[in-house]
């Protein structure tokens, strides 16, 4: 292993990103607009959960302290999570979930594509599969973004409101080492927004991460971790 592999901090940032968003998506189960979207959103969540598992397992192996994927997911405190704040944001209505997903996917496709031939061979091996998954996720979220944004007056209004509410979290998606990904992201988002007839809010103030974990994440983890903490080592 050379010095150019991703740090465990970086691995966990992306594992946490995928896992927190997976948890949010599964909150839609039995609540989506129809059975088909229920399955579609759950499928996205399952793909993301699979990505998180692989990254947690890799982080655990490199750390060499015997921590498993479950230890990372279930036994860390909220302050130890490194996910960008975008993926914690509540599901809101279907438009908000779609806008959150589109912004996430536009970032994720750039990040994973850069990993395919990147210097970290373990992450690169994973990336080949994840790029395919993420390409589909983007097709799904972009497709709905355009339908909702360029749909009825009501769906346009809701989509625009979601863009206004979520845009401030875009800057926080990018770690300092991600700077090279930003132009590709901006092009994708601009094209998607143009097709959806929505625009980036002018003068939107960027979200600044607090030193304390957000109440949203604390609540999400409390629910996700409660079973495991009540019954240590529980499995199916």
């Amino acid at each position: 292993m050379g010095a150019t592999v991703l740090s465990n901090d970086e691995l966990l940032r992306h594992a946490d990103r995928a896992m927190v968003l997976a948890q949010r998506l599964t909150e839609w189960i039995a609540h989506a607009p129809d059975l088909e979207e229920d399955m579609a959103l759950a499928n996205l969540g399952l793909d993301l959960l699979g990505q998180a598992r692989s990254l947690y397992t890799l982080a655990g192996a490199r750390e060499g302290a015997g921590r498993t994927e479950d230890d990372f997911a279930y036994l860390r405190e909220a302050r130890e999570f490194r996910n960008p704040a975008l993926v914690e944001q509540p599901n809101g209505d279907f438009a908000a979930t779609i806008v959150r997903q589109f912004l996430h996917d536009a970032y994720a496709i750039e990040w994973w594509t850069a990993r395919v031939d990147g210097p970290d061979p373990d992450v690169g091996a994973l990336a080949a599969k994840v790029v395919k998954e993420t390409t589909y996720h983007l097709r799904y979220s972009r497709g709905w973004l355009v339908r909702l944004g360029d749909g009825t007056d009501e769906s346009h209004r809701r989509t625009s409101a979601a863009v206004d509410a979520l845009w401030p979290f875009v800057g926080d998606l990018f770690a300092p080492s991600d700077a090279a990904l930003r132009p590709g992201f901006d092009d994708r988002v601009a094209a998607g927004f143009a097709d959806a007839t929505v625009s980036v809010p002018a003068g939107a103030e960027a979200f600044t991460p607090a030193t304390e974990p957000s109440p949203l994440l604390v609540e999400l983890l409390a629910e996700m971790q409660s079973l495991h903490r009540a019954h240590p080592g529980v499995s199916w």
Binding site: D34, E36, M39, A40, N43, Y140, G143, R147
Partner: peptide
């Protein structure tokens, strides 16, 4: 169920 052909294809894929 789907509102158009593209979404129908995606739903078919997902189900």
């Amino acid at each position: 169920h789907a509102p158009d052909a593209e979404i129908a294809l995606q739903h078919a894929r997902d189900l």
